[in-house]
Simulated scan of single mutants.
Amino acid sequence: MCGRFALTAAADQTAVFLGLAEVDAFPPRYNIAPTQPVLMALADVPQPPGSNRPDRTAVLVRWGLIPGWVKDTRDFPLLFNARSEGAAQKASFRAAMRHRRALVPASGFYEWRKEPDGQRGKGQAYWIRPRHGGLVAFAGLMESYAEPGGSEMDTGAILTTAADADIGHIHERMPVVIEREDFARWLDCRGNEPRHVADLLKPAPPGYFEAVPVSERVNRVANTGPEIQEPAVEVRQAAFRMSERGSETAKPDSRDRQLSLF
């Protein structure tokens, strides 16, 4: 699944990557979590021949899709991911798959390797990023939800698929990646039904991502700085150096306890 991701590129870089006229400025975001606003790109209304205006538009949506037919959101689960294998048939995602497919720009995502049976804890966290650097586009779905009071809220989810060999040892699922050459086909909901883009709902090519172990800082949504992406080995080394400076007479077992925090 994909429960956290990051978007640290500048707004102008993001706009160029997605083929948008512009994107409002935003700060680097290192720890985006469900219910927070996320940027999505959707196909705009068709442009007349000769128009220089891009046929895509950027929207901010709440990460957590709410189907239009939901009566009470308090009794509805948080749908921040959608399994791509059945999204076109599932009631919660069927309309969005047909009419509102989107792209979600990201610099990478986080995943946690499960602890062995019998051990407690969230498990080792990994920062999973494109090996070539730069941005990646996840397959997304957008749905507008009319609240009982009359106001509307745009909501969205990220489609997932079976993890590839590079990620499978960490988690069995990963976000669907849409390549740049397939952006137009994925977003074209007028000309392409879900069955026409089903071939895009597959794992990333081998070697596309690299997984970097990071510290437990990413576990807390309140931690939003770049330090959460520091490789875990570097975090441990920094802690060791700090303990060395703090007490030259520290015993080895006290250092071990310090290092065990990461």
Results as ranks from 00 to 15, higher is better:
M1Y: 01
G3T: 06
F5A: 06
F5W: 09
L7T: 02
A9V: 03
A11F: 00
D12N: 13
T14Q: 04
F17E: 03
L18E: 05
G19E: 05
A21P: 06
E22C: 12
P27K: 10
P27L: 10
R29A: 02
N31I: 01
T35Y: 11
T35E: 11
P37T: 04
P37C: 00
P37F: 02
L39A: 10
L39H: 02
L42C: 11
D44N: 14
D44I: 08
P49H: 06
G50W: 00
S51C: 06
S51L: 01
L60Q: 13
V61K: 03
G64M: 04
L65S: 00
I66M: 02
K71Y: 09
D72F: 07
D75S: 13
L79R: 05
R83D: 12
R83W: 07
R83Q: 11
G86H: 15
A87I: 00
A88C: 08
F93G: 05
A95L: 09
M97R: 00
H99Y: 14
H99R: 10
R100D: 10
A102H: 02
A106I: 04
S107W: 06
E111Y: 04
W112S: 01
W112F: 08
K114E: 14
G118H: 08
R120N: 12
G121L: 10
A125W: 02
I128C: 07
R129N: 12
P130Q: 03
P130G: 00
A137Q: 10
G140H: 07
E143W: 09
Y145Q: 03
E147D: 11
S151K: 09
E152Y: 12
M153C: 10
D154A: 15
L159C: 02
T160S: 04
T160H: 05
T161N: 10
H169N: 11
H171P: 05
E179H: 13
R185I: 07
W186A: 07
W186H: 04
L187I: 15
D188C: 04
R190N: 05
E193Y: 14
V197H: 02
A198F: 08
L201H: 07
P203Q: 10
A204K: 04
P206I: 10
P213W: 03
E216I: 14
R217N: 05
R217A: 05
N219F: 02
T224P: 08
A232Q: 15
E234K: 12
A238I: 03
A239M: 15
G246K: 12
T249A: 15
S254L: 15
R257M: 13
L261T: 12
L261G: 12
